[in-house]
């Protein structure tokens, strides 16, 4: 198997395998925290830090962690880093901590983090895993920032809390609510599909084989599905 270059690993998560818009992972925080740009950006950076640290740690320990115990081990590592990030945000960015609320803790069960641990970090070198964490984190942050910009500017006539006076009378408040979030999310997925001419969501590169539950749901079927697509 041809080894990927460091640059391609880093860039992979930004468009080609964007976790939010292509892999459709981390949907819950993507919808919940994108009502404001600063909240979405903060969430993206918090997830980036956790992804970076957990990918490095899991990659370092990939030969030590027993196959049967890998999910509990990953969860302990990820939950640990999420709690560290939470404490740091609470201490140094209290307003962001209040904005993100429970979604900061929920990074622990974010599919992107566990997905990359299972799909990438436990099979690749520390350097590549760190780059994958950064790339995926940047992809997540960009997707969230883009979604939140559309929702905040058009829905609340403001950008990062700064009001846009000439848009005050043209607000589409629906966009700041959950259905508006889903609509923007769907449109962005369609846009990415259009821009990449349908090449981005190649199922073989991230299909069921990367799923944390692949072992219990039948690996053979998953692999078959990946090959056929």
């Amino acid at each position: 198997m041809k080894e990927k270059s460091s640059l391609s690993v880093l860039l992979n998560g930004i468009i080609k395998e964007n976790p939010v818009l292509v892999l459709i992972l981390g949907t819950c925080p993507s919808l919940a925290t994108t009502t404001t740009v600063d909240g979405a950006f903060g969430m993206g950076i918090a997830a980036l830090v956790v992804l970076f640290c957990s990918n490095i740690f899991i990659s370092l320990l990939r030969k030590i962690i027993p196959e049967t115990m890998r999910i509990p081990c990953y969860i302990v590592i990820i939950a640990g880093f999420v709690t560290i990030v939470k404490m740091l945000v609470q201490a140094f960015l209290p307003s962001l901590y209040e904005t993100l609320g429970v979604y900061l803790d929920l990074i622990t069960v974010n599919c992107i983090i566990l997905g990359r641990a299972e799909m990438f970090a436990n099979k690749n070198t520390v350097i590549h895993s760190a780059l994958d964490g950064i790339g995926m984190g940047i992809g997540f942050t960009l997707a969230l920032t883009l979604m939140s910009t559309i929702r905040e500017v058009l829905g609340a006539a403001s950008f990062a809390g700064i009001e846009i006076p000439f848009m005050e009378n043209y607000k589409i408040e629906f966009l700041t609510k959950a259905p508006g979030g889903l609509l923007v999310y769907g449109l962005l997925i369609a846009l990415i599909y259009f821009v990449t001419r349908g090449k981005a969501p190649v199922k073989t590169s991230f299909s069921c084989e990367g799923c944390p539950h692949a072992g219990s749901c039948g690996k053979a079927d998953c692999q078959k599905e990946g090959v056929n697509s």
Partner: peptide
């Protein structure tokens, strides 16, 4: 397997305790 898991938990606990020690007074 159990020993590996306990070791990982211990390392994470040390990280958490250190961060808590640094951030608790500020929080």
């Amino acid at each position: 397997n159990l020993l590996v898991f306990v070791c990982i938990c211990t390392v994470m606990t040390v990280f958490l305790a250190t961060t808590n020690h640094l951030t608790a007074p500020i929080i």
